[in-house]
Amino acid sequence: MTAPLIQFVNLKKSFETQEVLKGIHLSIYSKEITAIIGKSGTGKSVLLKHIIGLIHPDSGEILINGEPVHLLSRGKIKAFQKELSYMFQDNALFDSMTIYENIALPLVENKYYKKNKIRDKVMDHIKELGLMGSEKKFPAQLSGGMKKRVALARALVTDPKVVLFDEPTTGLDPIRKKNVHTMIKEYQEKFEFTAVIVSHDIPDILNISQRIAMLDEGIIQFEGSKQDVLDSQSTIVNAFIRGEEALAKK
């Protein structure tokens, strides 16, 4: 197998006195969907924010294409970050802008394309995600599921090579959850981007991801394919999966 696109080596991060990440070892491979599962509040979002540079580690190393970040030039880091996009847990839509402006913002501000091209691109995404008719509305006027789709559109409109999803399905009903998952899978296959999804939607998430990593107690307890997860003898993994499954069946 080729060198991982992003690799964490012994990454540590504390907030004030609380140590959240206690030495993370994790590899993310290009053009795969990697799912990071685990209980709420174990630092999954924190881990994800390290990738895009919103949070910097206390110690440890992040490797990009096998090269440590601190050895890369600023330009190279910028170039890498330009190919990333991030979908926030609470969407983080700009509530003073319309849906159209929200989706168009990354293109308009960075002047990626000419005006007409931007318009076409944004309208394409609005159509594909079924947001027709609400492009002039404001985020507060939309339902939770629609906001999620707007956030997804905004994350995908820049044609990123890596998309980071922070719990893309929280607060959605089971049908919409399935929808979002299929959407991610479809888009991933269509545009061949690398996806990292933080989620606790067992078992749905297992079905769409090639690799699964489980975060608990500040370290990666488990890393492997779907089959590896199901075959795992680890009590922590089993407890998590069964627990979630049991709840889902009720």
């Binding site: 924010k49 895009i52 540079g53 919103l54 910028k78 970050q81 330009k82 990333l84 996009s85 991030y86 926030f88 847990q89 609470d90 983080a92 839509l93 700009f94 509530d95 003073s96 913002l105 990354p106 501000e109 960075n110 820049t158």
Partner: peptide, 25 residues
């Protein structure tokens, strides 16, 4: 208030992830 709400609802972080300088914006 407006910028504060943008901060606590992660909109400023979202700007950063889109490579938009939030101070400039």
């Amino acid at each position: 208030a407006e910028i504060g709400v943008m901060r606590v609802s992660e909109q400023i972080d979202a700007l950063k992830t889109m490579h938009i300088n939030p101070v400039r914006f």
